[in-house]
Amino acid sequence: MDSPAFPAAGQDLAAQIRQGSAGAFERLYQSQGARLKSIAYHLLGNRPDAEDAVQETFLKVYRSIGTYHGQAAFSSWVYRILVNTCTDVRRGRKRRAEEPDNQQRGRESSVALKIALERALVELNPKHRTVFLLAEVEGLKHSEIAEILEIPEGTSKNWLFEAKQALKRALARREKGQ
């Protein structure tokens, strides 16, 4: 049930975290920290908020591990907490999404299409952006996304299709504008 990103069986990791093992938290961070940060970055638009969201996610995992009974893959449960945390942050802070900084912009000027896609992604509605991010950017399966977002797998596929259609239109508009 667990994603290959959780090499140690997710249920074992969950059991260790339930027992308060600091080492288990560290293993979770080592194996998932980068992916969690990346997801949070795309959902929140800047690195500091992304790191705060990851930190908050770990706290929420600690606080609510007692409510996790293996009903979903542990990885899906953790990502669900992250996505919900980011949603709360977006609602609460209403910070301006961070534009790619000048250094990044300069370095990536040769990949203008990538930047255009990133900007178009920001303009997607949240549910489409989240599914696209999890499926296409982070490579999660629809079955995993369905668990994370607590939606049917068919809905996950539908939202991804709609997201890609919207991105395709946005990129086409950009090409026409140039």
Binding site: E118, L121, E136, V137, E138, K168, L171
Partner: peptide, 10 residues
């Protein structure tokens, strides 16, 4: 789009 998306991983 899928190919570009994979490069968006931060």
């Amino acid at each position: 789009i899928s190919s570009l998306a994979r490069s968006l991983h931060r």
